[in-house]
């Protein structure tokens, strides 16, 4: 799961009103937490296309949860000048599109429901009583 995907995900358990953003944490059983950087093709145009649709606060919080590998985002959404600065765009690209959560858990901020991420795939299948 890349942080772009994380930015899209919300808890959809029945009754939850504000299931966004999901916190990224280590797995509760065994405490596994694994993050890696998977190289992907860089496109400045795509970053500029996607920026207005990102929830910046959610991205920032997710990046902070990942530590050193995802450092370098500003507190406020990047300015137009930054979106034309190659060094910044490279950092933004890496954090949004290359940093991958391989093992961990996603936690709903309202219900505290935990969703496992295994082998980079979030499992957001609901139980019968959650639908």
């Amino acid at each position: 799961m890349k942080l772009l995907t994380h930015n899209m995900l919300q808890c959809h358990v029945k009754g939850v009103r504000n299931g966004y953003p999901l916190r990224i944490e280590a797995q509760q059983d065994g405490g596994r937490f694994e993050v890696e950087v998977r190289e992907a093709e860089f496109s400045a145009d795509f970053l500029r296309h996607i920026l207005p649709r990102l929830d910046w606060a959610a991205l920032l919080e997710a990046a902070k949860a990942l530590g050193e590998v995802a450092v370098g985002l500003p507190d406020a959404p990047p300015t137009d000048a930054m979106m034309h600065d190659d060094a910044f765009l490279q950092t933004f690209h890496r954090i949004l599109l290359e940093v991958t959560v391989v093992e961990g858990e996603l936690v709903c901020p309202e219900s505290e429901r935990r969703f496992a991420v295994k082998n980079a795939v979030p499992n957001m299948l609901l139980h019968e009583d959650e639908v």
């Binding site: 799961m1 930015n7 919300q10 992907a40 093709e41 290359e98 980079a120 795939v121 299948l125």
Partner: peptide
């Protein structure tokens, strides 16, 4: 294509919303 494609394990069916924020794709 690991860099380009992410997978998500979720149900798609009547009465089960997807866990994806509207407007993000």
């Amino acid at each position: 294509l690991e860099g380009e494609i992410d997978l998500l394990h979720a149900a798609i069916g009547a009465g089960v919303p997807l866990p994806i924020r509207p407007g993000s794709v």
